[in-house]
Design a protein around this nucleic acid. Structure first.
Lengths: 159, 159
DNA sequence: TATTGTTATACTCTATAACTATA
DNA sequence: TATAGTTATAGAGTATAACAATA
């Protein structure tokens, strides 16, 4: 067996380093997002939470009485996609859909006692996950990363 | 109409700032990835390229003679999902599938002259996109972001 | 027996249109 | 007329099993 063409060796996957791709933000952002997402998913699985259900739960715990439209806005997802997500949280008895006095169309999302407890446990799991993420880098890198991500998000959303 | 519950105002979406969520890496990584991806998609659309087809094209131009299995590995996608992607590039006459001397199973991916030209144009479009992304931040932030993303990717992939 | 490219398939995530009940 | 939650649906993106040709 021989090398397929010019510059590409078959056994060494490090040849990607030679490509322009290695320096692109979008490419690295995607890879980072993928590994972070799956590490987080694995960490939350024992609590029977998916990343999106955890995110929704945190927002509901931090903002009890939240309406679904507001939550969809905060999660940056469409309202229809929120329905099954809340169904899931409600069936696990982590949150309840309550009537909103003064507007019978809306539903106020309120965490149960169990929901609050599980959220606290999940928060600790997520802290461990983030510590793993920045292992060997320190807190300065963490806040720099947050700042740059927020800046890039803001500057592109403005367009 | 009145405020739905306790701490949540209905008109101001900035209440998310109060949540623990705003400080989480995963949440900010996802939002950044989403806006970067869609800005890039909009920028590449006039060239009839999607983000994934652009990424594949760059790798083929930088590594002519590449086999599909290698490309799938570099793109971090499964081999079956690469097939329609290459179909798309081939139908646009940007790359060709060629026989590999010595291994009649494999296909060597080679860019056409048109493919190389379009890739060069796309690279300039992507440079503009990245300049927009770091507008007001400077090159130091850019390399810091890359470094942290690569570190986080590496440390989690190792697990 | 293992690997390359491929087909078929399924599952998740996301996006849109339209319905109902309220406002 | 507009809005909140919902249903149904369609499109990406991604993952696995299995096949034919070849190693």
């Amino acid at each position: 067996m021989e090398t397929p063409a010019k510059s590409v060796t078959q056994t060494d996957p490090a040849w990607v380093d030679d490509s322009r791709l290695r320096a692109l933000i979008g490419y690295n952002l995607k890879r980072a997002f993928n590994v972070v997402k799956s590490d987080l998913a694995v960490a939350l699985a024992p609590l029977n939470l998916r990343v999106m259900t955890y995110t929704a739960l945190v927002l509901i715990v931090d903002n009890p009485g939240l309406r679904q439209a507001q939550l969809a806005d905060a999660l940056d997802i469409e309202r229809p996609n929120l329905v099954s997500l809340i169904d899931e949280l409600e069936q696990s008895e982590l949150v309840t859909r309550n009537p909103v006095p003064g507007d019978r169309r809306a539903r106020a999302l309120v965490p149960t006692a169990h929901g609050k407890r599980l959220c606290a446990r999940a928060n600790r799991v997520v802290e461990d996950h983030e510590a793993r993420l920045f292992d060997g880098l320190g807190m300065a890198s963490r806040s720099q990363l947050l700042a740059v991500l927020k800046h890039a998000t803001a500057v592109l959303e403005r367009v």
